[in-house]
C-alpha cells in the first residue's frame, strides 16, 4: 500500500519536471512609505523567480540590499542596518500557488489571486495577493500592488521617527516572465 504512495510521489515529481516553466526576465519592484512628515521611495530590478504553469506554483525572491533610491544614503544605511537587518535577512521571498485555474496557453488578461507564504525580515506570513496577469505567447507580465505592515514582520520603528516612516508600506511589482523550454 505505502509503496504505491511512494511510487505516486516519485512519479509526480517526474511529471512536474517536464512542464512549462516561466522565469523572470525583467523586473521592477518599488516601495513607498508615505508618512505625515516624509515620503520615502526605493526600487530594485533584481527580482528572480519562476512560475510553473502546470500546477500554477511560483516562487519569487529579491535581495533587500538591492533597493536603491531613498532620500539620502544615510536613510539607505538605516534601512539595511536598523530596520530590515539585511545582512541577517538578505531576501524577501514569496512562494505559493495561483488560486484561479487559468489557461496559460491562450493570450489574455486575468485578475488572479496568488496564495502563499511571504517572508520578509525573517518573518513568514500567509498572504493572498491580487495580481494582474497578461499572457501572450511565451511571455507573461505580472503586475501587482500590495501592502506590507511593518508590524507583521517585526520591523520596529522608534517613536522619534514614527512620523517619518509609514506603518504600512505600499509595494508595486512589475515582472516580465519568459518561457524556458
Amino acid at each position: 500500500m505505502k509503496y504505491i504512495f511512494v511510487l505516486l510521489f516519485v512519479l509526480s515529481t517526474f511529471i512536474t519536471e517536464a512542464q512549462d516553466l516561466f522565469t523572470v526576465s525583467k523586473s521592477n519592484i518599488e516601495f513607498t512609505s508615505d508618512a505625515p512628515l516624509e515620503l520615502i521611495k526605493a526600487s530594485s530590478n533584481e527580482v528572480s523567480g519562476a512560475l510553473k504553469t502546470i500546477d500554477r506554483t511560483f516562487v519569487f525572491r529579491m535581495a533587500i540590499k538591492s533597493f536603491e533610491g531613498f532620500n539620502s544614503s544615510l536613510q539607505k544605511t538605516h534601512f539595511n542596518e536598523n530596520y530590515m537587518e539585511s545582512d541577517k535577512y538578505p531576501n524577501a521571498i514569496f512562494v505559493g500557488k495561483i488560486i484561479e485555474e487559468i489557461n496559460f496557453k491562450t493570450s489574455g488578461i486575468h485578475e488572479i489571486r496568488a496564495k502563499g507564504s511571504f517572508t520578509c525580515h525573517g518573518i513568514k506570513q500567509e498572504r493572498i495577493i491580487k495580481c494582474k496577469l497578461k499572457i501572450s505567447p511565451d511571455k507573461i507580465n505580472v503586475s501587482s500592488k500590495f501592502t506590507v505592515l511593518l508590524e507583521d514582520h517585526n520591523i520596529k520603528i522608534p517613536t522619534v521617527v514614527s512620523q517619518k516612516i509609514a506603518e504600512e508600506i505600499v509595494v508595486f511589482v512589475n515582472l516580465d516572465l519568459a518561457s524556458r523550454k
Binding site: T13, V24, S48, A50, K52, R61, A63, R180
Partner: peptide
C-alpha cells in the same frame, strides 16, 4: 516551497 526555491537556485542563482 523548498523544491521551488531549489529550482529557482538552479535556474536563476542569486
Amino acid at each position: 516551497a523548498q523544491e521551488l526555491l531549489a529550482l529557482l537556485d538552479s535556474i536563476q542563482p542569486p
